[in-house]
Design a protein around this nucleic acid. Structure first.
Lengths: 195, 195
DNA sequence: AGGGTAACCGAACGATCGGTCGGGACAAGA
DNA sequence: TCTTGTCCCGACCGATCGTTCGGTTACCCT
């Protein structure tokens, strides 16, 4: 059996700290000095656990992407009417975004300056396109309003969902709060605010 | 009369270049070397026109904020039923965001690492709160659905609008395209996607 | 007891950061 | 022609960047 208790860092536990700092200061705005202060170990010790700054970013982004793509394989995202599958994916994406908040936040703020960042952007585009296909099908089945362009609607939908990272903070009773937010997103996106 | 033609830089024309690079690489990811290459003048020449990197950021952000706050003073945002004023502000914010895209983009990506950035965040919060008040009033007048929290709805609304900076590119016949997007935002936010 | 190794450290690396400095080219006004 | 001011330059500054290196603990296994 592997022991659950650790008073030293593992690559993963170090990642937890790093991702938090990245989100506070921005990836480019964070130095290894900042990370060492936050982690409570020296700058050089960080390199004992990971190859460098960019590996921390890569690990974080990979984790976010894994969780997001897993949504598309869930039964409710595969079977049923397209508009219902779309609503499920919408709700689940919002939930995953809140559950994996700091990791997804990093993913969403990538600029494309390095190879790692460009890879992140490409994978994100893949995910978006799969959801866009779902939207297109729902429109073809006549379940979405016809006076809004499908690509435009996709972008606005993702915009609304992704914006959660800008303000959501997982302080309180997490699960109920997450469901309330995901519910609000689904209501607003599919039924609108107006009575 | 001042001459309109210039083959040398002014603080404003330099800002145009700088803001573009900031948006491509991120503010922290942009060096003065990057700016000098993009502007076609030496690094030190930039300091002839502006005090430094942070002044460029401050100028850009100030311009974005000026345009945004001007919306709240428009007649249609002051008179009439709250829900209609809210829809006007929604539409106009989307339009301003597209018309002043690179400047607003910078504003929306600020982290709060410096005094300038913290000032930007504070002003942005002011704007958000004024719109939130409008939403609250519309809800009190019974024009918004009661099963979604007002603060939550405000955030999702802004999230949808602000996300435009992530994909909108002002290539084609700008005005008509902008109105189509602003229209889609208003429709989705107030009436929803579902038929 | 002793050998191995995981976890850490301080010091220093070359590169690059934002910014400064003194001066050159050039046009306008006297 | 001489001065003045705008616009720009290359060279350089101290500071900080991400990273490397040699070495010191302290604990595990035999």
């Amino acid at each position: 059996m592997t022991m659950p208790k650790r008073d030293t860092y593992t690559p993963d536990s170090l990642l937890t700290v790093a991702v938090q700092v990245f989100n506070e200061r921005g990836y480019d705005g964070t130095s290894m000095e900042h990370l060492s202060k936050a982690a409570g170990i020296s700058k050089s010790s960080i390199y004992h656990h990971v190859r460098g700054k960019e590996e921390l970013l890569r690990r974080a982004i990979a984790r976010a992407l894994d969780h997001l793509f897993a949504i598309l394989d869930e039964p409710e995202a595969v079977h049923g009417r397209a508009v219902d599958r779309l609503e499920h994916v919408t709700r689940r994406t919002a939930e995953v975004l809140m559950a994996e908040l700091p990791y997804v936040t990093l993913l969403l703020r990538v600029h494309g300056n390095t190879d790692t960042e460009r890879w992140a952007l490409a994978r994100r585009r893949e995910f978006d396109q799969q959801v866009a296909a779902l939207l297109k099908q729902a429109a073809a089945e006549g379940d979405l309003r016809a006076d809004v362009d499908v690509r435009l609607a996709t972008r606005l939908l993702f915009g609304m969902i992704n914006s959660i990272v800008e303000w959501y903070r997982p302080e309180r009773g997490t699960l109920a709060a997450r469901e309330e937010v995901a519910d609000a997103v689904a209501k607003m996106a599919f039924a609108g605010l107006r009575v």
